[in-house]
Design a protein around this nucleic acid. Sequence first.
DNA 1: AATGCGTGGAT
DNA 2: TATCCAAGCAT
Length: 296
Amino acid sequence: MGGSMSADADLHSPVIDWFDENARDLPWRRPEAGPWGVMVSEFMLQQTPVSRVLPVYAGWMARWPSPAVLATDPPGEAVRVWGRLGYPRRALRLHAAATAIAQLHGGKVPSEHAELLALPGIGEYTAAAVASFAYGQRHAVMDTNVRRVFARAVSGIEYPPTATSAAERRIAQRLLPLDERTAARWAAATMELGALVCTARSPECVRCPISAQCAWRLAGSPAHEGPPRRGQSYAGTDRQVRGKLLAVLREASGAVSQAALDAVWQEPVQRARALDGLVADGLVEAVAGGVYRLPQ
DNA sequence: AATGCGTGGAT
DNA sequence: TATCCAAGCAT
């Protein structure tokens, strides 16, 4: 098995105390955000930086202060307000989740992990995050930040593996404080530490509250072994074409012509494939006669 | 298990 | 300029 219980416990207080002093004042952390605000923020933050989420979150919550209100608007409006956050299928899934909450949960964001997991767009991470941040429950919340912190502090490696491993889950469970309140604080604190200090590219170990106990640091900060984790290319892909097509639809007040969509990409085969994909995903509706619009 | 899915800032 | 990276999910 891994390290001793005392070594694990020595991490809790420094990290939580650091969080008490350094936590960002983010809108979804305020009491008025409520479970719905937490849930909206988690959808928006999937693969998207905080700085870009902030303005969209504000607009979203002002227009749709509850899942029931969102459910009364067409999904295309969610896609429109989503704007340029990226991965617009998230907007569709958030709308679908709001509809399910309105219909199946009396309009209240469920508090049980299994009920959250059953909602569209909510996977293991988001279910744990909402249950922990919104309801104060005890869950191992493993996002890219937490995984990196544990990889370094506990496993002594610079980056976690590409896919979450059983070993990582064991470590997260082992480190999770037994007390529910403390566990919820720990989850937020470890995530914030990864986001602000133990960052991917240039960690600021001098500001880290557990640098003296960090296995990676103690090993001399060895460089990442193995093949470079390939970043996704973007230019020229279907994703870029989909983005350009959807941008036209978002910015139009109503339906748009085939000609307007054709103008965004010269190559007709890829353009058609991208448009078909958007329709298949439910992000675009084909109206009669080569006219398209956001879904209603 | 490996892919596809947006976008823009930082280095 | 090219690459990396950002609170993942669904298939």
